[in-house]
Amino acid sequence: MPAPIRDRLPRLLRELAKFGTVGGVAYVVQLAATNLFWLVLDAPPLVGQALGVLIATVVAFLGNRFWTFAHRARTGLGREYLLFFLFNAVGLGIQLACLGVSVYLLGLDGPLARNIAGNVVGVGLGSLFRFYAYRQWVFPDAGEPEAAAPGPQPESAPRASEPS
């Protein structure tokens, strides 16, 4: 195994384990909230799913910011919160697409089918996207400032002591 990969692997695995733990807690919160909205409050499928995800997102942000990625650069609470919710909105879109296909295209609308489509398949695919996005843009590595925000970065001006 190449040295750069071998040296980074332990940290990546620690982050992945913490991300999974935080995600597991947020997942339980999301399952409970979503099913509460569906079964107790009789919310429509997509509304109940969206509200459950919103509640779980707050739990996930706190766990990821203060535990999973606590060792990474702090780029400002407002910026991190905004990007976290933006990328969670994309993850929610992935989740809702899975649920929508199941309910509205395939006609699988029972509680089990909803949970499998939205809370297993949708969460799994959305989580892969979220982990990448959080590491890359929300909580960038302190040693990689170019990963601080998506898109092109402005070039910094040379210091007086540096040749132009």
Rank of each mutant, 00 (worst) to 15 (best):
G124V: 03
R8S: 13
R72H: 10
A89I: 12
V138R: 07
V103Q: 06
R130E: 05
V29S: 06
I116C: 00
Y27I: 01
G122W: 08
S164G: 15
V123M: 00
G48H: 04
F139A: 07
G100F: 04
R65G: 05
R79W: 09
F131M: 02
G76Q: 03
G91T: 03
P163G: 10
E162L: 13
V138Q: 01
L41Q: 10
V40M: 10
P4M: 03
R11T: 09
R114K: 15
W38I: 04
T68P: 06
G151V: 05
P4K: 11
G126A: 14
F85G: 03
L106H: 05
S127K: 00
R74S: 11
A157G: 12
L39V: 04
L13G: 07
T34R: 07
V22G: 07
E80Y: 06
F129K: 07
F139P: 02
Q136C: 09
E80F: 10
L105M: 11
R74E: 15
G24R: 09
R11A: 15
V22K: 07
Y81G: 06
A160L: 14
P45A: 14
R130Q: 13
P4E: 03
I116K: 03
D141Y: 03
Y81K: 09
D42H: 15
D141A: 11
Q153V: 07
A17N: 12
A50W: 09
A149T: 10
P45I: 08
A89V: 01
F66Q: 00
P152M: 15
G107F: 14
D141F: 10
A70N: 11
L36A: 12
A117D: 09
V138S: 06
S161E: 14
S156V: 13
L16D: 08
A160Q: 13
N88H: 14
R8D: 14
E155Q: 13
F85T: 12
V120N: 09
L9H: 02
W137F: 14
D42K: 12
R72Q: 02
A97M: 07
L13P: 11
W67T: 02
D42G: 10
P10K: 03
V59S: 11
D42P: 05
L128E: 02
A149M: 11
A97H: 02
V53Q: 09
G124S: 07
A70I: 02
R159Q: 13
V90C: 04
A70V: 12
F85Q: 14
H71T: 14
F37H: 02
A70M: 00
L62H: 14
Q153N: 09
G78D: 11
M1D: 13
V123L: 00
G151T: 05
V120C: 01
Q30L: 04
H71G: 14
E144Q: 14
G24H: 00
K18T: 08
R114Q: 12
P152W: 15
Y104K: 10
R6E: 13
